[in-house]
């Protein structure tokens, strides 16, 4: 597998594909990742807020059964392997996107796989908010909604950003798997052109590109998190 990397024939064979397909594939990977992360945050962040605020000792306790149900749903969704989940949600994908194949169709299973993960990340981030700050806000007459909007979320921004970075890199990894059910992107290239056709140069090139993308996301995320943290400005 590796010795191919040093064969000029293999490279000659691979280069047209790399030139012709990689730009589009990278774009597909990026937009699927970003859109999926966006929708997953849209569902996961409010869910995380509900889990923290609605807790027994939270700022707006909810009936215990609601929190328990949410926890069970999140745990179930998080334990189903992504490949199986993609197949399980085919009917839902068909309802939302109209088809179960193609790049756009992979966004649905990606969001469903990622939002429980993001809900947990948001939950842990929000639990880190100093309870004294929350008490302070209560002492000044803040409502639960105001505490969420003006204390819990702003105070945990640095942690939310670094956890969102973790989420986006994880989702990027999932997009590669979605190549199996006809999703586009670098994953599809690696599997279809590389693995199935024994053109390992293409496979490795695609993987390296994915690694580079993860690196970029991670370092941008780290920088943003650090820049947003006003506790470090001393």
């Amino acid at each position: 597998m590796f010795n191919e990397l040093f064969s000029s024939e293999a490279w000659a064979e691979a280069l047209p594909v790399i030139r012709g397909q990689f730009l589009l594939a990278t774009w597909e990977t990026l937009y699927v990742t970003v859109l999926s992360t966006f929708f997953a945050i849209l569902i996961g962040l409010p869910l995380g807020i509900v889990l923290v605020a609605g807790d027994e000792k939270g700022i707006r306790p909810l009936p215990k059964w609601i929190i328990k149900t949410l926890n069970v749903i999140i745990n179930i969704l998080r334990s189903v392997p992504f490949l199986i989940l993609m197949i399980l949600v085919f009917p839902l994908t068909r309802v939302i996107v109209g088809t179960t194949v193609g790049t756009a169709a992979t966004i649905v299973p990606l969001v469903i796989a990622a939002f429980p993960f993001i809900a947990r990340l948001a939950e842990t981030s929000l639990r880190e908010v100093n309870p004294n700050s929350i008490e302070m806000a209560q002492s000044l007459g803040a409502s639960p909604m105001q505490i969420i909007r003006k204390v819990m979320l702003p105070e945990s921004v640095p942690l939310l950003i670094s956890n969102a970075t973790t989420a986006i890199t994880t989702i990027l990894g999932y997009t590669a798997m979605s190549g199996i059910i006809g999703g586009g992107g670098l994953g599809k290239i690696a599997i279809n052109y590389g693995y199935y056709r024994y053109r390992y140069v293409i496979m490795f090139a695609a993987v390296i590109l994915l690694v580079v993308l993860v690196q970029i996301f991670q370092s941008v995320g780290n920088k943003l998190a650090a820049a947003s943290d006003k506790r470090l400005r001393s």
């Binding site: 100093n130 004294n132 700050s133 204390v151 105070e155 006003k230």
Partner: peptide
């Protein structure tokens, strides 16, 4: 512990 909002 003063309880200022650290991000503001």
């Amino acid at each position: 512990s003063f309880n200022l909002l650290m991000q503001k």
